[in-house]
Amino acid sequence: MIVAERKSLDEILAMLQGCSRVLVVGCGTCVTVCMAGGEKEVGVLASLLRLAAQREGRTVEIGEATIERQCEWEFVDELAPAIRRYDAVLSMGCGAGVQTIAQRFGGVRVLPALNTKFIGIPEKQGMWVEMCLGCGDCVLDRTGGICPIARCSKGLLNGPCGGSQGGKCEVSKDTDCAWQLIYDRLASLGRLDLLETEFAPKDWSKNRDGGPRKVLREEVML
């Protein structure tokens, strides 16, 4: 899932300078699960915005709404009746959500309340880690199911580098060396032979080359 984190309040307040009617919109999917932008976080942020205003003696109107997914036209449509009453929409969805709302409602200021971080998993309750970079050309078949691109600090395809110490990455003692993990896992699978074939330089054209990527499947189109 997509993992995000709320921006600092200072940053959000600065963005909202001059807005007195703000609609805070949550997303009921990824960011609910990663506890950054679900209905509860909407409530918290809305409450804080009101308190900040009250503290300064300003009057504001802060609306709250949470929709199933901000990245779907049909769900975003649910905002239509109320949205134009506000000076700004503060989206608590990921970057895709913010843009979907903006695209759907021309002329409405849509602002991001979150920083979208990565595709990852909750390693444990309250801690999320990155697992995938969306490189467009998956290599997990050759690396024992551990992604060197997302999880090796240097994104090395033919690791490890000399900074691998006692299973940890030189970047931080808290970071496992992805290549050590790959080695251990392949060893346990009895497939160390996979390491004997060198990776050719990665074809990044499948990633950012050629602008924003598209996936097109005619058979499911209307």
Binding site: S8, L9, L48, L51, R55, E56
Partner: peptide
């Protein structure tokens, strides 16, 4: 800490 962030 949230209150502190809004000056309370």
């Amino acid at each position: 800490s949230l209150l502190k962030a809004v000056g309370i």
